[in-house]
Every structure is written in C-alpha cells, then in structure tokens.
Design a protein around this nucleic acid. Structure first.
Lengths: 181, 181
DNA sequence: GGTTAATTCGGACCAGCAGTCCGCTTCACC
DNA sequence: GGTGAAGCGGACTGCTGGTCCGAATTAACC
C-alpha cells in the first residue's frame, strides 16, 4: 500500500502540455473553434487524459484564464493604491475593463457555458464583492452586479463590432454606471 | 404551371400545430428541455416540417414569443401615456422589466443562441432605440444598451435565485441605472 | 372530374462534440 | 525487482440541430 503525496511526473507533464496546447489553440483558432479532441491531439495526449486532468471543458477554460486572473487579483488584494486596498472606484473599474478587454475570447466562452457560468465563477464573485465594498450609494450590491454585467465580454464585443462604439466610449459609460446613485 | 399566392392549407395547419405544441411544451418542460424532435412529435408532424416552417430553432422560439412582443410594442408605439408616445422613462422601464419577468424562460433561451442573439433580435433593437430616445444624459445610446443588458433574463434569474434579491429590489436597481447621468 | 406541376411532408440520416469506459501501461515506493 | 495505485488513450456513447429526397398532397387550370 503506497500512499502518494506527490503528483506523478507524467501527470504533471501532461497537465502542463494540455494547458499550453489549449492556450495556444484558443489564441490562434478562437475558443469556440477548438474541440477537446483538438486539444488532446495538439498536446500529444489521449482525450481521456484531458478530462481526467481538468474535469470538463469549463474547468479547462478557467484554468487557462487563471494566471491572468491571479495577476489582477493580487494587484487588487495586496498591491499599492489606487488599485490596491483603499483605492478608488474608477481605477478599479478601469482595471476590470482592461482585464475583460484583453481576455474577451476566454471570458465569452465562459459566459456561454452553464446557466450562471459568468457569475458563479470564483473570480467574478471576488470582483463583485470587492466592487460592492468600494462603491457608494443606495444598493451597492445590486449596482456592483449591474456594473459587472455591463462588463460582460459579449456585451462589449457587441457594442464594438455591431454598434461601432469605441473602447473609450464604453469605458466611460461603465464609469458612469458605477457612479449612479 | 400554377402560380400560387395563398399558403397551402396543410402548411398553415401544420404551422399552427407546431406553434401550439412548442408553446405548451416550452411552458411545461422548460425551453432547454425540449428538442425539435419532441416538438415535431407533439405536433403530429415530421421534423422536416418543423424546420421547413420555421427555419431553425431560434426562429421557432422567436415565433412563440412574437405575440407577447407585439402586445407590448403596440402599447409603446400607439398606446396612451405614460407607456405610449411621450410617456415617462420609469413607466417604460417598468414595462420592459415586467415583460422580461413574464417571459424569462423564452428570453433566456434566445440569449443562449448565437453570438449576439439577445441584441440582434428585432424586438430588442426596438426596445433599445426607443429607450435611447426617451433617456436623457451624456451618452443615451450607451446607457440604453446598459439598461437593456441589466434586463437580461439570465441576469435577473441569477440575482433572484442565487443572490436572493427580490423582484422589487431589482426593479428599483434598474430604475437607478436608467437615471444615471 | 381530371391533369399536372409546384409545394409540402416525414423520418431516416448525417455530422459534430462533450464526456465515459475500461483494458493496458507506467510510475514510484518498498 | 515486485506490486498495486494512478494514469493513459482512443474507441464508444448519447444527444441534438439540421439536411435530404422519394412519396404524397394540394390547387390552378381545363
């Protein structure tokens, strides 16, 4: 009977290979254009392994996004103001906007999965809670949700590509919402 | 060579049967729980007929929703104030909220299809344009989109069922957004 | 009523994909 | 090395939206 505390080397190697392949493929072909088979093949691994390592497609997408989430989250939790603790609302909202902007494809894919995929997400929970904490007004909890909703990647994409709005215009609009009271 | 201007009787009959079956099934089983085969069977019709009559699933869902859309749209376009022309913003926003509230399942299903299904929709275009017309402030066009986004059925469902907010609280929150400037 | 061509019907069929299953292989601890 | 837990891979399943085409129906015209 062997108790194991370390992850097996092959498992770790495969996990990294899958993550790397998925990141590259998502970036190159767009998230929706890449199937789990594609990823398995690109990683030189069986499909079963992909599911064993990550559980399901949603979790894999989240795993690809995770490093970028963590970066922002650390800046917000322990960085210097105006983004860190005690920082201003506009700085925080802008940072969230830029985060969504940079990661639109992955976030959109996430939004598209499961009923409440966009909010249920750990990261989103954190963004919302922190936003509610910083906001002022009548119902900051509702307002925080509304602002995060306005920051949905599909919304931003739509305003840009179908309505011809500029990035800065949307940014300003979101700031306006965050200042509602 | 026979030129035909009238819709064939059987076609019209089948169309009605499909619409009726779909409405009932969506209502009873939830939209996502009903496949096109289910609908065809319930309507006593082949699947090919369903697709011939409606094109695709999205169009069928829209067709089921259409009568309810038209009702509100007529009230807004030609009814008496405060909902009709020249009416107030709060009345209009409340009416939209109630519309979404009553038709959450169908609207959610629509939101879930295609990239911009929620906005691309004829009805939504109208709601947004009309809202932008009635609003006041810096960027009424952006704000109108933001308010409609806050009225997404999945958002409202989430706030209710996962965050325990009440219907009235959300309603008040949306009104707050609409008053931002 | 009969003819005829356009229209419609229906359900077998197809394609694509997330996720499962299980016999076989590999790892790592003793 | 021996051993058994952990991992592997890829064939397989289940489900669904959408297509296809030979057969059946309809209605304009005679």
């Amino acid at each position: 009977m062997a108790r194991r505390f370390a992850i097996r080397q092959d498992a770790a190697r495969n996990r990294a290979a899958i993550l790397e392949a998925a990141t590259a493929l998502f970036d190159r072909e767009g998230v929706e254009g890449v199937s789990m088979d594609d990823i398995a093949e690109a990683a030189g691994v069986g499909k079963g392994t992909v599911f064993r390592r990550f559980g399901d497609r949603t979790a894999l997408i989240e795993a690809v996004l995770e490093p970028r989430v963590r970066e922002l989250r650390e800046a917000v939790e322990t960085g210097p103001p105006p983004l860190g603790p005690g920082g201003t609302v506009p700085a925080y909202v802008d940072a969230l906007f830029d985060f969504v902007w940079r990661n639109r494809p992955l976030i959109r894919a996430l939004e598209h999965r499961g009923p409440y995929a966009y909010y249920a997400n750990d990261a989103s929970q954190f963004w919302i809670a922190e936003l509610a904490r910083r906001l002022e007004g009548v119902d900051t909890d509702y307002l925080a949700h509304a602002v995060l909703t306005a920051l949905r990647a599909d919304v931003i994409d739509y305003l840009i590509s179908a309505r011809g709005m500029t990035r800065d215009r949307i940014r300003a609009g979101v700031q306006l919402l965050a200042a509602a009271r």
